[in-house]
Simulated assay, not measured.
Amino acid sequence: MMNLDSKDEQQEEISEINVTPFIDVMLVLLIIFMVTIPLATVNIPLNLPAISEEKQENTGTPVILSLDAQKQLFLGNDQISFEDLVEKIDIATQKNKDIVIFFRIDNSVQYEEMMRIMNLLRGAGYLKIGLVGLDQATDYAK
Rank of each mutant, 00 (worst) to 15 (best):
D8T: 06
A137M: 04
L131R: 15
I101L: 09
F74G: 08
I91W: 09
G60W: 03
K142R: 15
K97Q: 03
N107S: 14
D8A: 05
Q56F: 04
I23N: 12
S6D: 06
D135V: 04
A141M: 02
K71A: 10
K95C: 07
L29Y: 13
Q10T: 06
Q79W: 03
N3M: 04
L65W: 12
E53C: 01
V132S: 14
I129F: 15
L65Q: 12
I31C: 07
P62M: 10
I117D: 09
N3H: 01
E113D: 12
N3R: 09
F22K: 09
L127Q: 14
I44G: 00
T20W: 11
E57L: 06
N47K: 00
V132P: 14
E83I: 10
I31W: 11
G60D: 13
L127I: 07
V28F: 04
N43Q: 02
A40Y: 07
L27D: 05
T41F: 12
D5C: 00
T93G: 14
P62T: 01
Q72M: 11
F102A: 06
F103H: 14
K97R: 15
F74V: 04
N119K: 02
R116E: 10
V63Y: 06
I23K: 14
E12H: 02
Q70R: 03
M118I: 04
D139E: 15
A69M: 05
K55T: 08
M1Q: 06
A50V: 00
I64E: 08
V100A: 10
V63A: 11
L127R: 15
A69I: 08
A50P: 00
T36F: 09
D98K: 15
D90C: 06
Q94A: 13
F74E: 12
D78F: 00
I89K: 14
M2E: 10
I99F: 15
Q11T: 05
M118Q: 09
I17M: 08
I31Q: 10
I64M: 07
V28H: 06
L46A: 00
